[in-house]
């Protein structure tokens, strides 16, 4: 087990009240495994990722839990130690590649900076390593691109640069937060291919965060489904698509338009909307939108329990086996 997260909770302390963006989340990621965390916007996926590397912006913070990375608890580390983990152990890429790069430094400066800091390379070595990394991530003419500024690159190329930066410390875990959401579908497919290639090459584990269950279907070995602040289902990708157990997972899958199934069939959406964090329904927060829930669902949030081989679900009504 490379990453083991236990009962993680991260709250934001707002004037309006306590916003429990992540509220008791437990999961693990194995060495070299690709795990996806999916859920709709505003369900807390990104806050899980930011919690892992302790980058939650105030007024938010991690309030409880354990994050064991390679056996060491990230939440109980000194900031120096943690910085080393961020540089070498865990890499991260974000949704908006344009916003994650510094507009006033060249691509080369930004990569060599990281290399010199985390791999203690000299100027020339860093230069060489940076060119190699850019080539590795599929950037054509990497020597030339070293002198380019971010605005001179397309979104797909910017994301490749960020991936190069994220893997420059040879991380064991790459957290990819909506890495393709801002990109076109053909570019998205290229970036997903690249991630799969790099994983193979470097033996990294990937935690892939996405609102798009279609994107993760091709690349993830396991999928975790999140609904405001909680993980409601975890299963191997195939099992999840073939036999979803949580009513939210089922509804989510049936509302995805599928290509090639013919047109003009009404889609099944989910009635209502994802609830507001400051005004969550009691008990299971999905119960107002759920078709199989009853009065027993309104008092307490169901625990995430084993319901079969390698799968967990948080629903009182879910079938087991």
């Amino acid at each position: 087990m490379l990453l083991n997260v236990q009962d993680l909770a991260s709250y934001f302390f707002l004037d309006e009240g306590e916003l429990k963006a992540v509220d008791g989340v437990s999961f693990h990621v194995d060495v070299k495994e690709t795990v996806a965390l999916v859920g709709e916007s505003g369900c807390g996926k990104t806050i899980v990722a930011l919690s892992l590397i302790n980058l939650i912006p105030p007024p938010g913070r991690v309030v409880r839990g354990r994050i064991l990375f390679d056996g060491r608890d990230l939440l109980r580390m000194e900031s120096d130690e943690l910085r080393q983990v961020r540089g070498g152990g865990i890499g991260m890429i974000f949704q908006e590649p344009g916003a994650a790069l510094n507009p006033i430094y060249t691509i080369g400066d930004q990569i060599t900076g990281v290399l010199r800091l985390h791999r203690s390379l000299g100027k020339h070595q860093a230069q060489k390593a940076a060119i190699e990394l850019l080539g590795e991530t599929g950037i054509p003419e990497p020597e030339k691109r070293m002198n380019a500024y971010p605005f001179e690159l397309s979104g797909g190329m910017q994301q490749r640069v960020l991936i190069a930066i994220a893997i420059s410390g040879r991380p064991k875990l790459l957290i990819a937060d909506e890495p393709t959401t801002a990109l076109d579908v053909t570019v998205q497919a290229d970036i997903l291919d690249l991630l799969a290639y790099l994983q193979e090459q470097y033996g990294m584990a990937i935690l892939l965060i996405s609102h798009d269950i279609g994107v993760v279907a091709d690349v993830a070995e396991r999928i975790m489904v999140m609904y405001p602040g909680k993980i409601v289902e975890i299963a191997d990708t195939e099992d999840l698509f073939r036999d979803p157990r949580h009513p939210y997972t089922k509804a989510l899958l049936s509302s995805v338009p599928r290509l090639g199934v013919g047109h003009n069939e009404p889609l099944k959406g989910i009635p209502g909307a994802v609830p507001d964090f400051l005004d969550l329904p009691s008990g299971c927060t999905f119960h107002p939108r759920c078709t199989i829930g009853d009065s027993s669902c309104t008092s307490e949030f169901p625990p995430l329990v084993d319901i079969g081989y390698r799968r967990k679900c948080a629903c009182y009504k879910a079938e087991t086996g």
Partner: peptide, 22 residues
């Protein structure tokens, strides 16, 4: 079409890769 991600493992499409940039 070949780049559209599929949620049905049964209907996997063969990717046609386009060189270059939009």
């Amino acid at each position: 079409l070949s780049a559209v991600p599929s949620i049905d493992p049964a209907t996997k499409r063969k990717r046609i890769r386009l060189p270059g940039e939009p």
